[in-house]
């Protein structure tokens, strides 16, 4: 089974984001990049699929050259090969451009299954998996929390309003991972040592004309401090008055 897993490097969720003095970019000092947590789940699922069915896992990243350490981590977890599409101004690529670049690379590979995270936690667009499947003309099941894979098909469960949906698709197909699908393994020392010897292809790519222009980046306004209007039942009247007269929401 040939498995491709798409991975993005994103600022760690611990990062305190600061807008750079140019007003259109994020200050990079002290920003630590990690594997997008949903992609890490996708990587784990890809490795498990390989362990069950044989074959190989290729990890594919579009991103600046600094993303290489996270790609190495994916190899250390158990991916077999890496393709790094190096793009230094990737933040100007919208979901459409990202999907185009990823798909043209995947089209050169043999694949049965593609795994992605359901979204990247930096931009939160939820777009790439669906667009990628469309461009490759294969079925996609998104935000799955359970998967039963055979060499012919995949049956995936996803949460929908008020219930669970079970979708079975023939391979080749794309699945995007939701939390709960698995618990990603740690990169072990033998894995880290082995990762150094695994194929790691780097290729420069550039964005087409349809790239984004970022006009400005602003932090959300600071949340106003809370106000305690009183305690116990006697505070209810005052609270209702404030909600009606000041906040005007009731």
């Amino acid at each position: 089974m040939n498995i491709v897993v798409c991975m993005k490097s994103v600022p760690s969720s611990e990062t305190k984001v600061k807008v750079d003095s140019d007003g259109v970019s994020i200050e990079q000092t002290d920003v630590v990049y990690e594997i997008n947590p949903y992609d890490e789940i996708a990587i784990e699922e890809a490795i498990r699929a390989k362990e069950a069915h044989g074959g190989k896992v290729t990890v594919l990243t579009l991103g600046p050259s600094t993303a290489s350490q996270n790609i190495r981590k994916a190899l250390a977890m158990g991916c077999d090969e890496a393709v790094h599409l190096i793009c230094e101004n990737v933040e100007l690529a919208d979901s459409s451009a990202v999907a185009e670049l990823l798909s043209s690379s995947i089209k050169e590979m043999e694949f049965d299954v593609i795994f992605c995270g359901k979204k990247a936690i930096d931009c939160d667009n939820h777009q790439v998996p669906n667009r990628l499947a469309q461009l490759l003309d294969i079925p996609a099941v998104t935000a799955i929390f359970n998967l039963v894979l055979t060499t012919e098909s995949g049956s995936a469960k996803r949460e929908i309003e008020g219930g669970t949906e079970l979708v079975t698709v023939n391979l080749p197909a794309l699945f995007s991972a939701e939390k709960g699908l698995n618990e990603p393994r740690y990169a072990s020392l033998p894995g880290i040592m082995a990762a150094k010897k695994k194929p790691f292809e780097e290729r420069q790519v550039s964005l087409g004309d349809e790239k984004l222009t970022i006009l400005s980046i602003e932090l959300p306004p600071p949340t106003a401090e809370g106000r305690i209007v009183g305690e116990g039942p006697e505070a209810a009247g005052e609270l209702v008055r404030i909600l009606r007269e000041e906040a005007k929401i009731i």
């Binding site: 350490q69 020392l189 150094k196």
Partner: peptide
Amino acid sequence: SLYQGVDFYNIDELLTEEERLTRDS
């Protein structure tokens, strides 16, 4: 928030990728 380590002199830059990966793992 999670523990991030202490690295006032950016000693991380002196470590190899293998060393950083292991430390992080």
